[in-house]
């Protein structure tokens, strides 16, 4: 049986290097919307002196709503200018695969490059794809990321739809190095990724895993108080769970996510 390890976890809020270092081309930076810039920078920050971009065998990204800022800008220009004299840049950058593609371009990585855009299952699809690739011995290190950033027009539309009556909005970029090999940097073992048929109550999972009696195991159940709710919020939850893992206080974390009571997923993390 192949084992899967998470060897890096990076969040857009805690980047340790500046954007000019992560995306050296100033022209490229200028053309990027916030989502693309933060997504690319967060992905690029997984590469450093002891882990080069050449070692990555695939780049897989996930986004629920894609590059909204670029799509909105191009659509607005098209309506306001009556289809005339349009700047192609926001159109070019509006495709859902822009972040993954730009990371591939920046580090001249010719390997497998994929993007999932399936609402609350975007990130889990990317993670599943990484697992499938790692079952093939040609693949050892997979960069998996999730990116969703809000724009004011979207927040307004979702307010009219009633989303913010129950949830608060959120955004962010998160990247993980998922590997078939354990290294000195390994944070946790990815022991399982499951897709339950329907939403599972917290009580049922608490009982199933005995997390109340067993202090070595912990359940992260839809913990979106600090993150807000957005399609790829499960990537933020995974990041939070990995920070907990780094404290070396628990052996197992069961991470349960669902987006607006749909797309339930269950991730099991084991300590190293």
């Amino acid at each position: 049986m192949q084992s899967y390890y998470i060897n890096q976890a990076v969040c857009s809020d805690t980047l340790t290097r500046g954007l000019p270092e992560l995306i050296p081309d100033a022209g490229m930076r200028r053309r990027m919307s916030k989502m693309v810039k933060m997504g690319v920078a967060t992905g690029m920050s997984c590469f450093d002196s002891h882990f080069s971009a050449d070692s990555v065998d695939a780049i897989i990204t996930a986004t629920g709503l894609g590059c909204l800022e670029d799509s909105e800008k191009f659509l607005r220009n098209l309506i306001e200018n009556d289809e005339q004299l349009l700047n192609p840049t926001p159109f070019i950058q509006s495709t859902f695969n822009t972040v993954g593609a730009q990371i591939g371009l920046l580090c001249k990585n010719h390997s497998y490059n994929m993007t999932y855009a399936h609402r609350g299952r975007s990130f889990e699809s990317a993670l599943l794809d990484a697992i499938l690739l790692l079952n093939d011995e040609d693949y050892k290190n997979i960069l998996v990321g999730a990116i969703d950033y809000t724009i004011p027009q979207q927040l307004k539309i979702m307010e009219r739809m009633g989303f913010w009556r129950t949830d608060k909005p959120g955004e962010g970029a998160f990247f993980f190095m998922v590997s078939s090999e354990r290294t000195a940097d390994t944070i946790a073992e990815l022991k399982a990724l499951e897709f339950p048929d329907a939403e599972i109550e917290k009580e049922e999972l608490t009982k199933r895993y005995g997390v109340e009696k067993d202090s070595s195991a912990k359940l992260f159940y839809r913990e979106y108080d600090t993150t807000g709710v957005y399609p790829t919020v499960s990537a933020a939850s995974l990041y939070d769970a990995l920070q907990e893992m780094k404290r070396n206080e628990v052996e197992t974390i069961y991470l349960y996510n669902s987006f607006r009571n749909e797309y339930p997923s269950l991730i099991t993390l084991g300590c190293i």
Binding site: G66, T95, F96, N97, N113, M114, T115, Y116, A117, H118, R119, R121, S122, S125, D129, L132, F195
Partner: peptide, 21 residues
Amino acid sequence: FTSTISTACSSAANAIMLGAR
């Protein structure tokens, strides 16, 4: 299992590939 792929003009070929895998 249901999912959506969006890699611009190569998207459907990638969907066929994921299904096969």
